[in-house]
Amino acid sequence: MNKTMDRRWDLAGSLAVVALGIAVIIGALTYPTPEIVFDAIGPMGFPLVLGTFLVIGAAVVSIRTIIGLRREGIWAVAEGTEDEPEHPSVGWRAPAIIAGSFVYLALLQPVGFLIMTPIALYGALWAMQYRTVRWRIIIAVAFTLVSFVIFTQALRVPLPSGLLDPLLFALGLTAI
């Protein structure tokens, strides 16, 4: 078995769950509970139990990870899904694509689908080291145009027009 799991990240995750559990408990305890007859558990009973479970469970995972860190070091045998063999992995790429996705989504409404989507697709294909500039542009623009036509014209889904709203409205290409 290959050791591919970084225990420091594992510990960070379990500590985050502990913090989440504490926040849930505090929220559940401070929430005003309405007095309802025949509801012994109440609306905050379930979150309280969940929060407690998350704190205790994640604390146990954290302690075990700390012990592992001290005894065996940073790297552990992967408990999650491992990378597929024969395809080299690039550590920065997934976090970068996740971050890029949120930037794209933040700008989707104000800038519009027709402008943001080809840029985002080109960026993702570039990050994935796909072929040449020409092919990235062709795929990004083709997907954007085809999906725009299918969704706005065939399925009547009003995709965000953004900056192009007046132009698309004039051309009769908005869904509603």
Binding site: N2, T4, W9, R71, D83, P88, G91, W92
Partner: peptide, 19 residues
């Protein structure tokens, strides 16, 4: 007593960042 600095054995990675 196992020391903690043993390098990972995976051959599928091209860099050290495994996050």
């Amino acid at each position: 007593r196992a020391e903690s600095t043993a390098p990972p054995t995976s051959s599928t990675h091209t860099d050290g960042d495994r996050s």
